[in-house]
């Protein structure tokens, strides 16, 4: 009897707990109602497709659907890892985006430091608007605009030949193509990238500058000894976050800048996925295996970046 009594008591406690949770849920019901539309969207358009990745282990038959198609184990991955094009595209992705990171990353910092020293207020506003403008245009527009000036008979080549130089085939030349990717990236994004550093600079304590003034520091000294060290944490965080995006960067740009002559030197992993899926008879199972590989590597990099940026006092990817 003693035992049964204890059991009953335990059941009562459990019931009481459950009741309390239900009561809390009921009390907060509006929150769930508000959340519902967004959660339904995530379910249908994010999580169901994520489940679709199981096709990487299946032989997709359109008539059988995703769930009905037969399992094939790791067949697609075996084929994938034997595909030379795949490994080359992975290597190219890493090469292009690592160099891109080191070439493009310092530019916004420098622009921010310069803008901070520009003392004509009105002019500063106008220039900042100009510098941030290209960021808001798609790569289709940017590629159209830049292809025009960089074309064989474009204005840049006209200027070069007027100065007595040889005409350069900027975009149709395998050797030039990757450097052009970095340059056009800087052209489009560096101005916008500087805004975050300007925000950081505006938060610097003014007393440091006053103390430096008393010591008779020059403006260059103040820039290098006060401004730059103060925004170093922001720089570190931005660098790590950019490094986390190495696997995913560049598709929009390359897709619109590329052409037949340089197709190979621009085939990063995302371009490879696009080509095997949408420009050939697609094997969805195989394509999905590549996508899964990409998503996993990408996730690992992002998690590392997130941890890294927290080390430097950032908020990580999640704000």
């Amino acid at each position: 009897m003693f035992c049964a009594g204890q059991k009953q008591r335990r059941n009562e406690v459990k019931m009481e707990k459950r009741k309390r949770i239900f009561r809390r849920i009921w009390k907060n019901k509006t929150i769930y109602i508000v959340l519902l539309p967004a959660l339904v969207w995530y379910l249908i358009f994010v999580y169901v497709p994520m489940g679709g990745l199981m096709l990487a282990f299946k032989d997709y038959k359109a008539n059988l659907g995703i769930l009905g198609s037969p399992w094939t184990g790791l067949k697609h991955f075996e084929n994938l890892f034997r595909d030379v094009d795949f490994w080359q595209s992975v290597g190219r992705t890493l090469k292009i985006n690592v160099i891109r990171l080191f070439v493009t990353f310092p530019v916004p910092v420098i622009i921010a430091l310069l803008f901070n020293e520009l003392r004509i207020r009105k002019y500063k506003k106008v220039l900042q608007t100009v510098f941030t403008f290209p960021h808001f245009l798609s790569w289709i527009i940017i590629a159209s605009v830049l292809r025009n000036v960089l074309a064989y008979d474009g204005i840049v080549n006209s200027i070069i030949s007027l100065c007595g130089g040889d005409v350069v085939n900027f975009l149709g030349n395998k050797r030039m193509f990757q450097p052009m990717l970095y340059l056009t990236d800087i052209w489009k994004e560096a101005g916008w990238g500087s805004i975050i550093y300007l925000a950081a600079i505006s938060g610097i304590d003014q007393e440091q500058y006053e103390a430096a003034d008393i010591d008779g520091a020059s403006r260059l000294q103040k820039m290098l000894r006060i401004t730059l060290p103060n925004i170093m944490p922001t720089i570190a965080v931005m660098f790590i976050l950019a490094a986390g995006g190495i696997m995913g960067a560049g598709f929009d740009q390359i897709f619109n800048m590329t052409n037949a002559a340089v197709r190979e030197s621009g085939e990063i992993l995302d371009m490879y996925i696009y080509r095997i899926t949408f420009q050939a008879t697609p094997d969805f199972g195989f394509s999905m295996a590549v996508s899964l590989f990409r998503s996993i590597v990408n996730m690992v990099l992002l998690v590392i970046a997130d941890r890294g940026s927290r080390l430097f006092g950032g908020n990580g990817l999640f704000g």
């Binding site: 999580y47 489940g51 990745l53 096709l55 899926t277 996508s291 998503s295």
Partner: peptide, 11 residues
């Protein structure tokens, strides 16, 4: 979902 996604094909 910020870390991992299915990509365009399953969508």
């Amino acid at each position: 979902t910020m870390l991992f996604g299915g990509g365009i094909i399953p969508l």
